[in-house]
Amino acid sequence: MFTRILFPTDGSDATPKALRYALDLARLCGAELHTISAKELFPYGAVSDLQPTPPQEFLQAQERTASERVKAVMEAAQEAGIPCRASTVEAAHPWEAICDYAGQHRCDLIVMASHGRHGLAALLRGSETPRVLGHCGVPVLVVR
Rank of each mutant, 00 (worst) to 15 (best):
R144N: 12
H105C: 01
C136F: 08
V140I: 14
A113H: 03
P83D: 06
G30M: 06
E63R: 08
F2V: 00
C136D: 12
S67L: 15
A113Q: 01
H93K: 09
C107M: 07
V138G: 11
R64K: 15
C107S: 10
K39S: 11
R106A: 14
L6S: 07
A76G: 02
V47W: 09
I98M: 05
A72R: 04
L123F: 02
P54V: 06
A77I: 00
G119W: 08
L133H: 05
A76H: 01
A92V: 10
V138A: 09
T9M: 05
V70M: 11
L59T: 12
H93F: 15
C136V: 10
P55A: 15
E96Q: 06
R144D: 04
A38L: 08
T9E: 07
E79L: 04
R69P: 06
E96R: 00
V111H: 06
A72S: 13
A102F: 00
V89R: 04
M74A: 03
P43G: 13
G119E: 05
A38R: 00
V89Y: 02
P8H: 04
C99K: 05
S87W: 10
A122G: 10
E63F: 03
P52G: 07
H115W: 11
M74E: 08
P8N: 07
G134Y: 07
G119Q: 11
L41S: 03
Y21N: 01
G119A: 09
M1F: 05
F58E: 08
L124N: 12
P139N: 14
K71G: 05
K71Y: 03
R144G: 12
R4W: 00
W95P: 01
T88P: 02
I82A: 00
P55G: 12
P55K: 14
R4A: 07
P139C: 10
A72I: 02
D100K: 07
V143G: 11
L28N: 14
H93V: 12
A38M: 04
G126W: 14
P83C: 10
S114C: 11
L23E: 08
A76N: 07
L133E: 05
E75Q: 06
A31P: 09
V73C: 04
A92T: 12
L19Y: 00
P16D: 15
A86E: 06
L120I: 15
K17V: 10
D100C: 00
K17D: 13
D100I: 05
Q78F: 01
T35G: 03
P83Y: 04
V70P: 06
G134R: 09
A97G: 05
H115F: 01
Q51F: 07
A97Y: 00
G116H: 04
S127F: 04
P83F: 06
A26R: 06
E79R: 01
G30V: 14
L19C: 14
T35C: 11
T129P: 07
S12E: 11
P52W: 05
A46T: 12
D24W: 00
S87L: 11
F58V: 03
A91C: 08
T35V: 09
C29V: 00
Q56L: 11
R106M: 08
T65A: 15
P8W: 00
R144A: 03
R117H: 09
P54Q: 12
Q60V: 13
A92G: 01
K17E: 15
E75P: 02
Q56A: 14
P52L: 14
P16W: 10
A22E: 12
K71M: 11
S12W: 14
P52V: 02
C107N: 13
V111A: 08
K39M: 15
I36K: 08
V140M: 13
Q104D: 10
I36T: 01
